[in-house]
């Protein structure tokens, strides 16, 4: 049965169905509906909803709840995610599973509340201090947002790596019919023998990202990076649309990926052989599939709501095998399909 939900609401409901039982937040636009939904619904499922005094406090409450072995989440939007970066680095260092939703808005600074994709670097390249990565998943529809939230909890628990949902203001606010995923069956959450449950009949557990000995800490980080390499092998996700005979492929994620799908349909109607490559996991980034595409497609046009951030990963993937032009918008301005189509026409002849 499909229900009509906003992206923010669908992500909240999916988190509850994924077994999230502790949610800590601080209000910020444009993710307010997620907070409101959790405030209304999570306590009915026996969960903890807590509005913290700041994003900094909220992410550290997530750290505590995750350390106690519970599925936990926080959500925010760009300026708030910047504040959470300290805690996210500690989560990564302490190998704690947690889900962080970023409903991106335009920055830098206070910017505005319109949709943007300027936090790609922050999400995929670390963001906080130190040598770490987050699993980053980018939905392009409300349906996919719900599904990726469920997946984020599973991947985060499986690898003990925090996961981020990188959405944007348009997806958060948009209403669409959604087939909600079934609540997880009991036993789906893996056992967490490392969690802080009281040192009864076992040696004490310590959740920490701290080791003064550089050689010991190096081994901890080597183990962490071995996990990251495993994630890179197993968890790359992307979607291709009409790429088989394409002369130009648009590379776009999230809301831009969705708009570019419309662009492909319009271009095809005009006889232009245009396709779409949409990364779903931004980390791990689909370098190999994109490289394979570049072997046979002469132009890969990256389209982003930024000055060109994912574009760097596209060029790293392609390594000169194809032309890699860029088209982006700034400040929360979302380009129309027509504007993108006219950009496409600069590179392909009908």
């Amino acid at each position: 049965m499909k229900v009509l939900l906003r992206g923010n609401e669908a992500m909240a409901e999916a988190a509850i169905r994924a077994g999230c039982r502790c949610y800590f937040c601080y209000p910020i636009t444009p993710q307010g509906e997620l907070v409101e939904y959790m405030a209304r619904h999570l306590p009915r499922h026996g969960g903890v909803f807590l509005q913290a005094e700041s994003e900094v406090a909220a992410i550290n409450m997530v750290y505590g709840a995750a350390a106690a072995g519970v599925r936990t989440m926080t959500s925010s939007s760009s300026p708030g995610i910047s504040l959470k970066m300290e805690g996210i680095s500690y989560l990564a260092g302490a190998r704690l599973p947690a889900v962080i939703v970023n409903v991106m808005r335009a920055g830098p600074g206070l910017g505005n509340i319109a949709p943007a994709q300027g936090d790609y670097f922050q999400a995929t390249k670390g963001g906080g201090h130190g040598d770490y990565r987050l699993i980053v998943l980018a939905p392009s529809t409300v349906q996919e947002a719900a599904e990726l939230v469920m997946l984020a909890f599973d991947l985060s628990d499986r690898y003990r790596v925090p996961a981020m949902i990188l959405a944007d203001g348009m997806l958060g606010q948009m209403m669409e019919p959604v087939e909600l995923p079934e609540p997880i069956p009991p036993g789906r959450i893996p056992p967490k023998p490392w969690a802080l449950t009281g040192a009864k009949d076992r040696a004490p557990n310590v959740v920490s990202s701290f080791d003064l000995d550089p050689y010991r800490f190096r081994e901890i980080l080597r183990a962490l990076w071995a996990v990251y390499r495993e994630i890179e092998r197993n968890e790359v996700r992307w979607e291709e649309y009409a790429t088989e005979d394409a002369e130009l492929v648009l590379v776009a994620y999230g809301t831009m990926g969705r708009i570019c799908r419309t662009v492909v349909r319009r271009a095809r109607k005009e006889g232009l052989r245009v396709g779409l490559f949409r990364p779903i996991s931004l980390w791990p980034f689909p370098y190999a599939p994109l490289r394979r595409l570049a072997e046979r497609v002469p132009v890969l046009l990256t389209v982003e709501l930024s000055a060109g951030q994912m574009w760097e990963d596209v060029r790293l993937a392609v390594e000169g095998r194809a032309k890699t032009p860029f088209y982006g918008e700034l400040g929360g301005v979302v380009p129309t399909p027509e504007e993108i189509l006219s950009e496409v026409k600069k590179h392909v002849r009908g």
Partner: peptide, 18 residues
């Protein structure tokens, strides 16, 4: 005892979460 190591100043937030 079981222990969590907190970021500087954040112990009360971490304790709240636990």
């Amino acid at each position: 005892c079981d222990f969590a190591q907190a970021a500087h100043g954040r112990a009360c937030a971490v304790a709240t979460g636990i």
